[in-house]
């Protein structure tokens, strides 16, 4: 009995160690980025594997603010992400409501159509979309970055998952009282799934904030640069000044997703944990 207990404790310790090692590996790049951004220029090149700064300085941030129109860059990213999130949420909520509460013989077909769009890689459609936006003269505009992202099958899919948990009888009762569908949506369904909507909003915002490829193709004008594009400008340039600046910019860009994650962590995690489970 005693040996079995010891064996069990040892096993527990072993698996905790495996998981903690994984956690360290995954946090290391993040910590390295933050701590490097606080190192003086000379330290950055010389420090090797040593993650901790000998002296903390904000020189890199000051230099970044000189080298990049920082507020403008952040504002651009913010506008793109807000616009995309807002419209995407509207199209997704409407679509998910129709699929959940107005089912008819076409619902399944429409649903499969949406799922298929999920499997078309972005790079397959980037050239035609670029040409479409050029035709609409939307290159170098915020709307141009957002427009192709206004519909999102995975968002519809996840919202539908939450809406299905709303009792159908609730909507049916309201409908018998002649409450219009739009009122059912805004007054019954949305309040009931508001935490799921909030976490989806955060996820949409963060995804768009993080976007690199599409803004790179659409935004060529320096004035329109988003934060991910600004970062790239300084990466790879040898010498500590470039490294310091790109680490500072990277840290700034991670700050917002980090704060949002700390606020809505539980919601985001539970919404993704259920996303792979089939009905």
């Amino acid at each position: 009995m005693q040996t079995k207990k010891v064996k069990n404790t040892l096993k527990q310790i072993f698996w905790h160690a495996v998981i903690i090692a994984t956690v360290i590996v995954f946090l290391y790049p993040f910590l390295y980025m933050v701590l490097t951004s606080l190192k003086p220029f000379a330290d950055i090149v010389a420090s090797g594997a040593n993650i901790f700064p000998k002296r903390i300085t904000f020189d890199n941030y000051i230099h970044t603010a000189d080298a990049v129109p920082l507020l403008r860059v952040i504002a651009n990213s913010f506008m793109v992400a807000t616009l995309t999130m807002t419209v995407k949420m509207i199209t997704s909520v409407l679509g998910a409501y129709a699929l959940t509460f107005l089912p008819n013989k076409y619902s399944n077909k429409v649903f499969y159509f949406f799922i298929i769009t999920m499997f078309v890689p972005f790079s397959v459609i980037m050239l035609p979309n670029y040409l479409t936006l050029a035709k609409l003269s939307l290159l170098d505009t915020i709307v141009g970055v957002s427009l192709p992202q206004f519909a999102d099958a995975s968002a519809i899919f996840r919202l539908r998952q939450s809406m299905r948990l709303v009792p159908k009888s609730l909507i049916e009762a309201a409908r018998l009282d002649k409450v219009p569908h739009m009122t059912c949506l805004t007054k019954i369904v949305m309040p009931l799934i508001k935490s799921s909507i909030a976490s989806q909003c955060i996820f949409m915002f963060v995804n768009c904030w993080n976007e690199y490829v599409w803004p790179m193709l659409i935004l060529r004008n320096q004035e329109m640069m988003t934060i991910t594009l600004a970062m790239k400008k300084f990466s790879g340039s040898e010498g500590s000044t470039g490294w310091g600046t790109s680490m500072a910019l990277a840290t700034i860009s991670v700050a917002l997703p980090l704060v949002l994650y700390l606020i809505a962590q539980k919601q985001i995690i539970s919404s993704f944990m259920s996303s792979g489970i089939k009905e």
Partner: peptide, 13 residues
């Protein structure tokens, strides 16, 4: 948490 960080940040780091 790293899943919420941009690929471009990942690449640069």
């Amino acid at each position: 948490f790293p899943s919420l960080i941009s690929l471009s940040v990942g690449a640069i780091v």
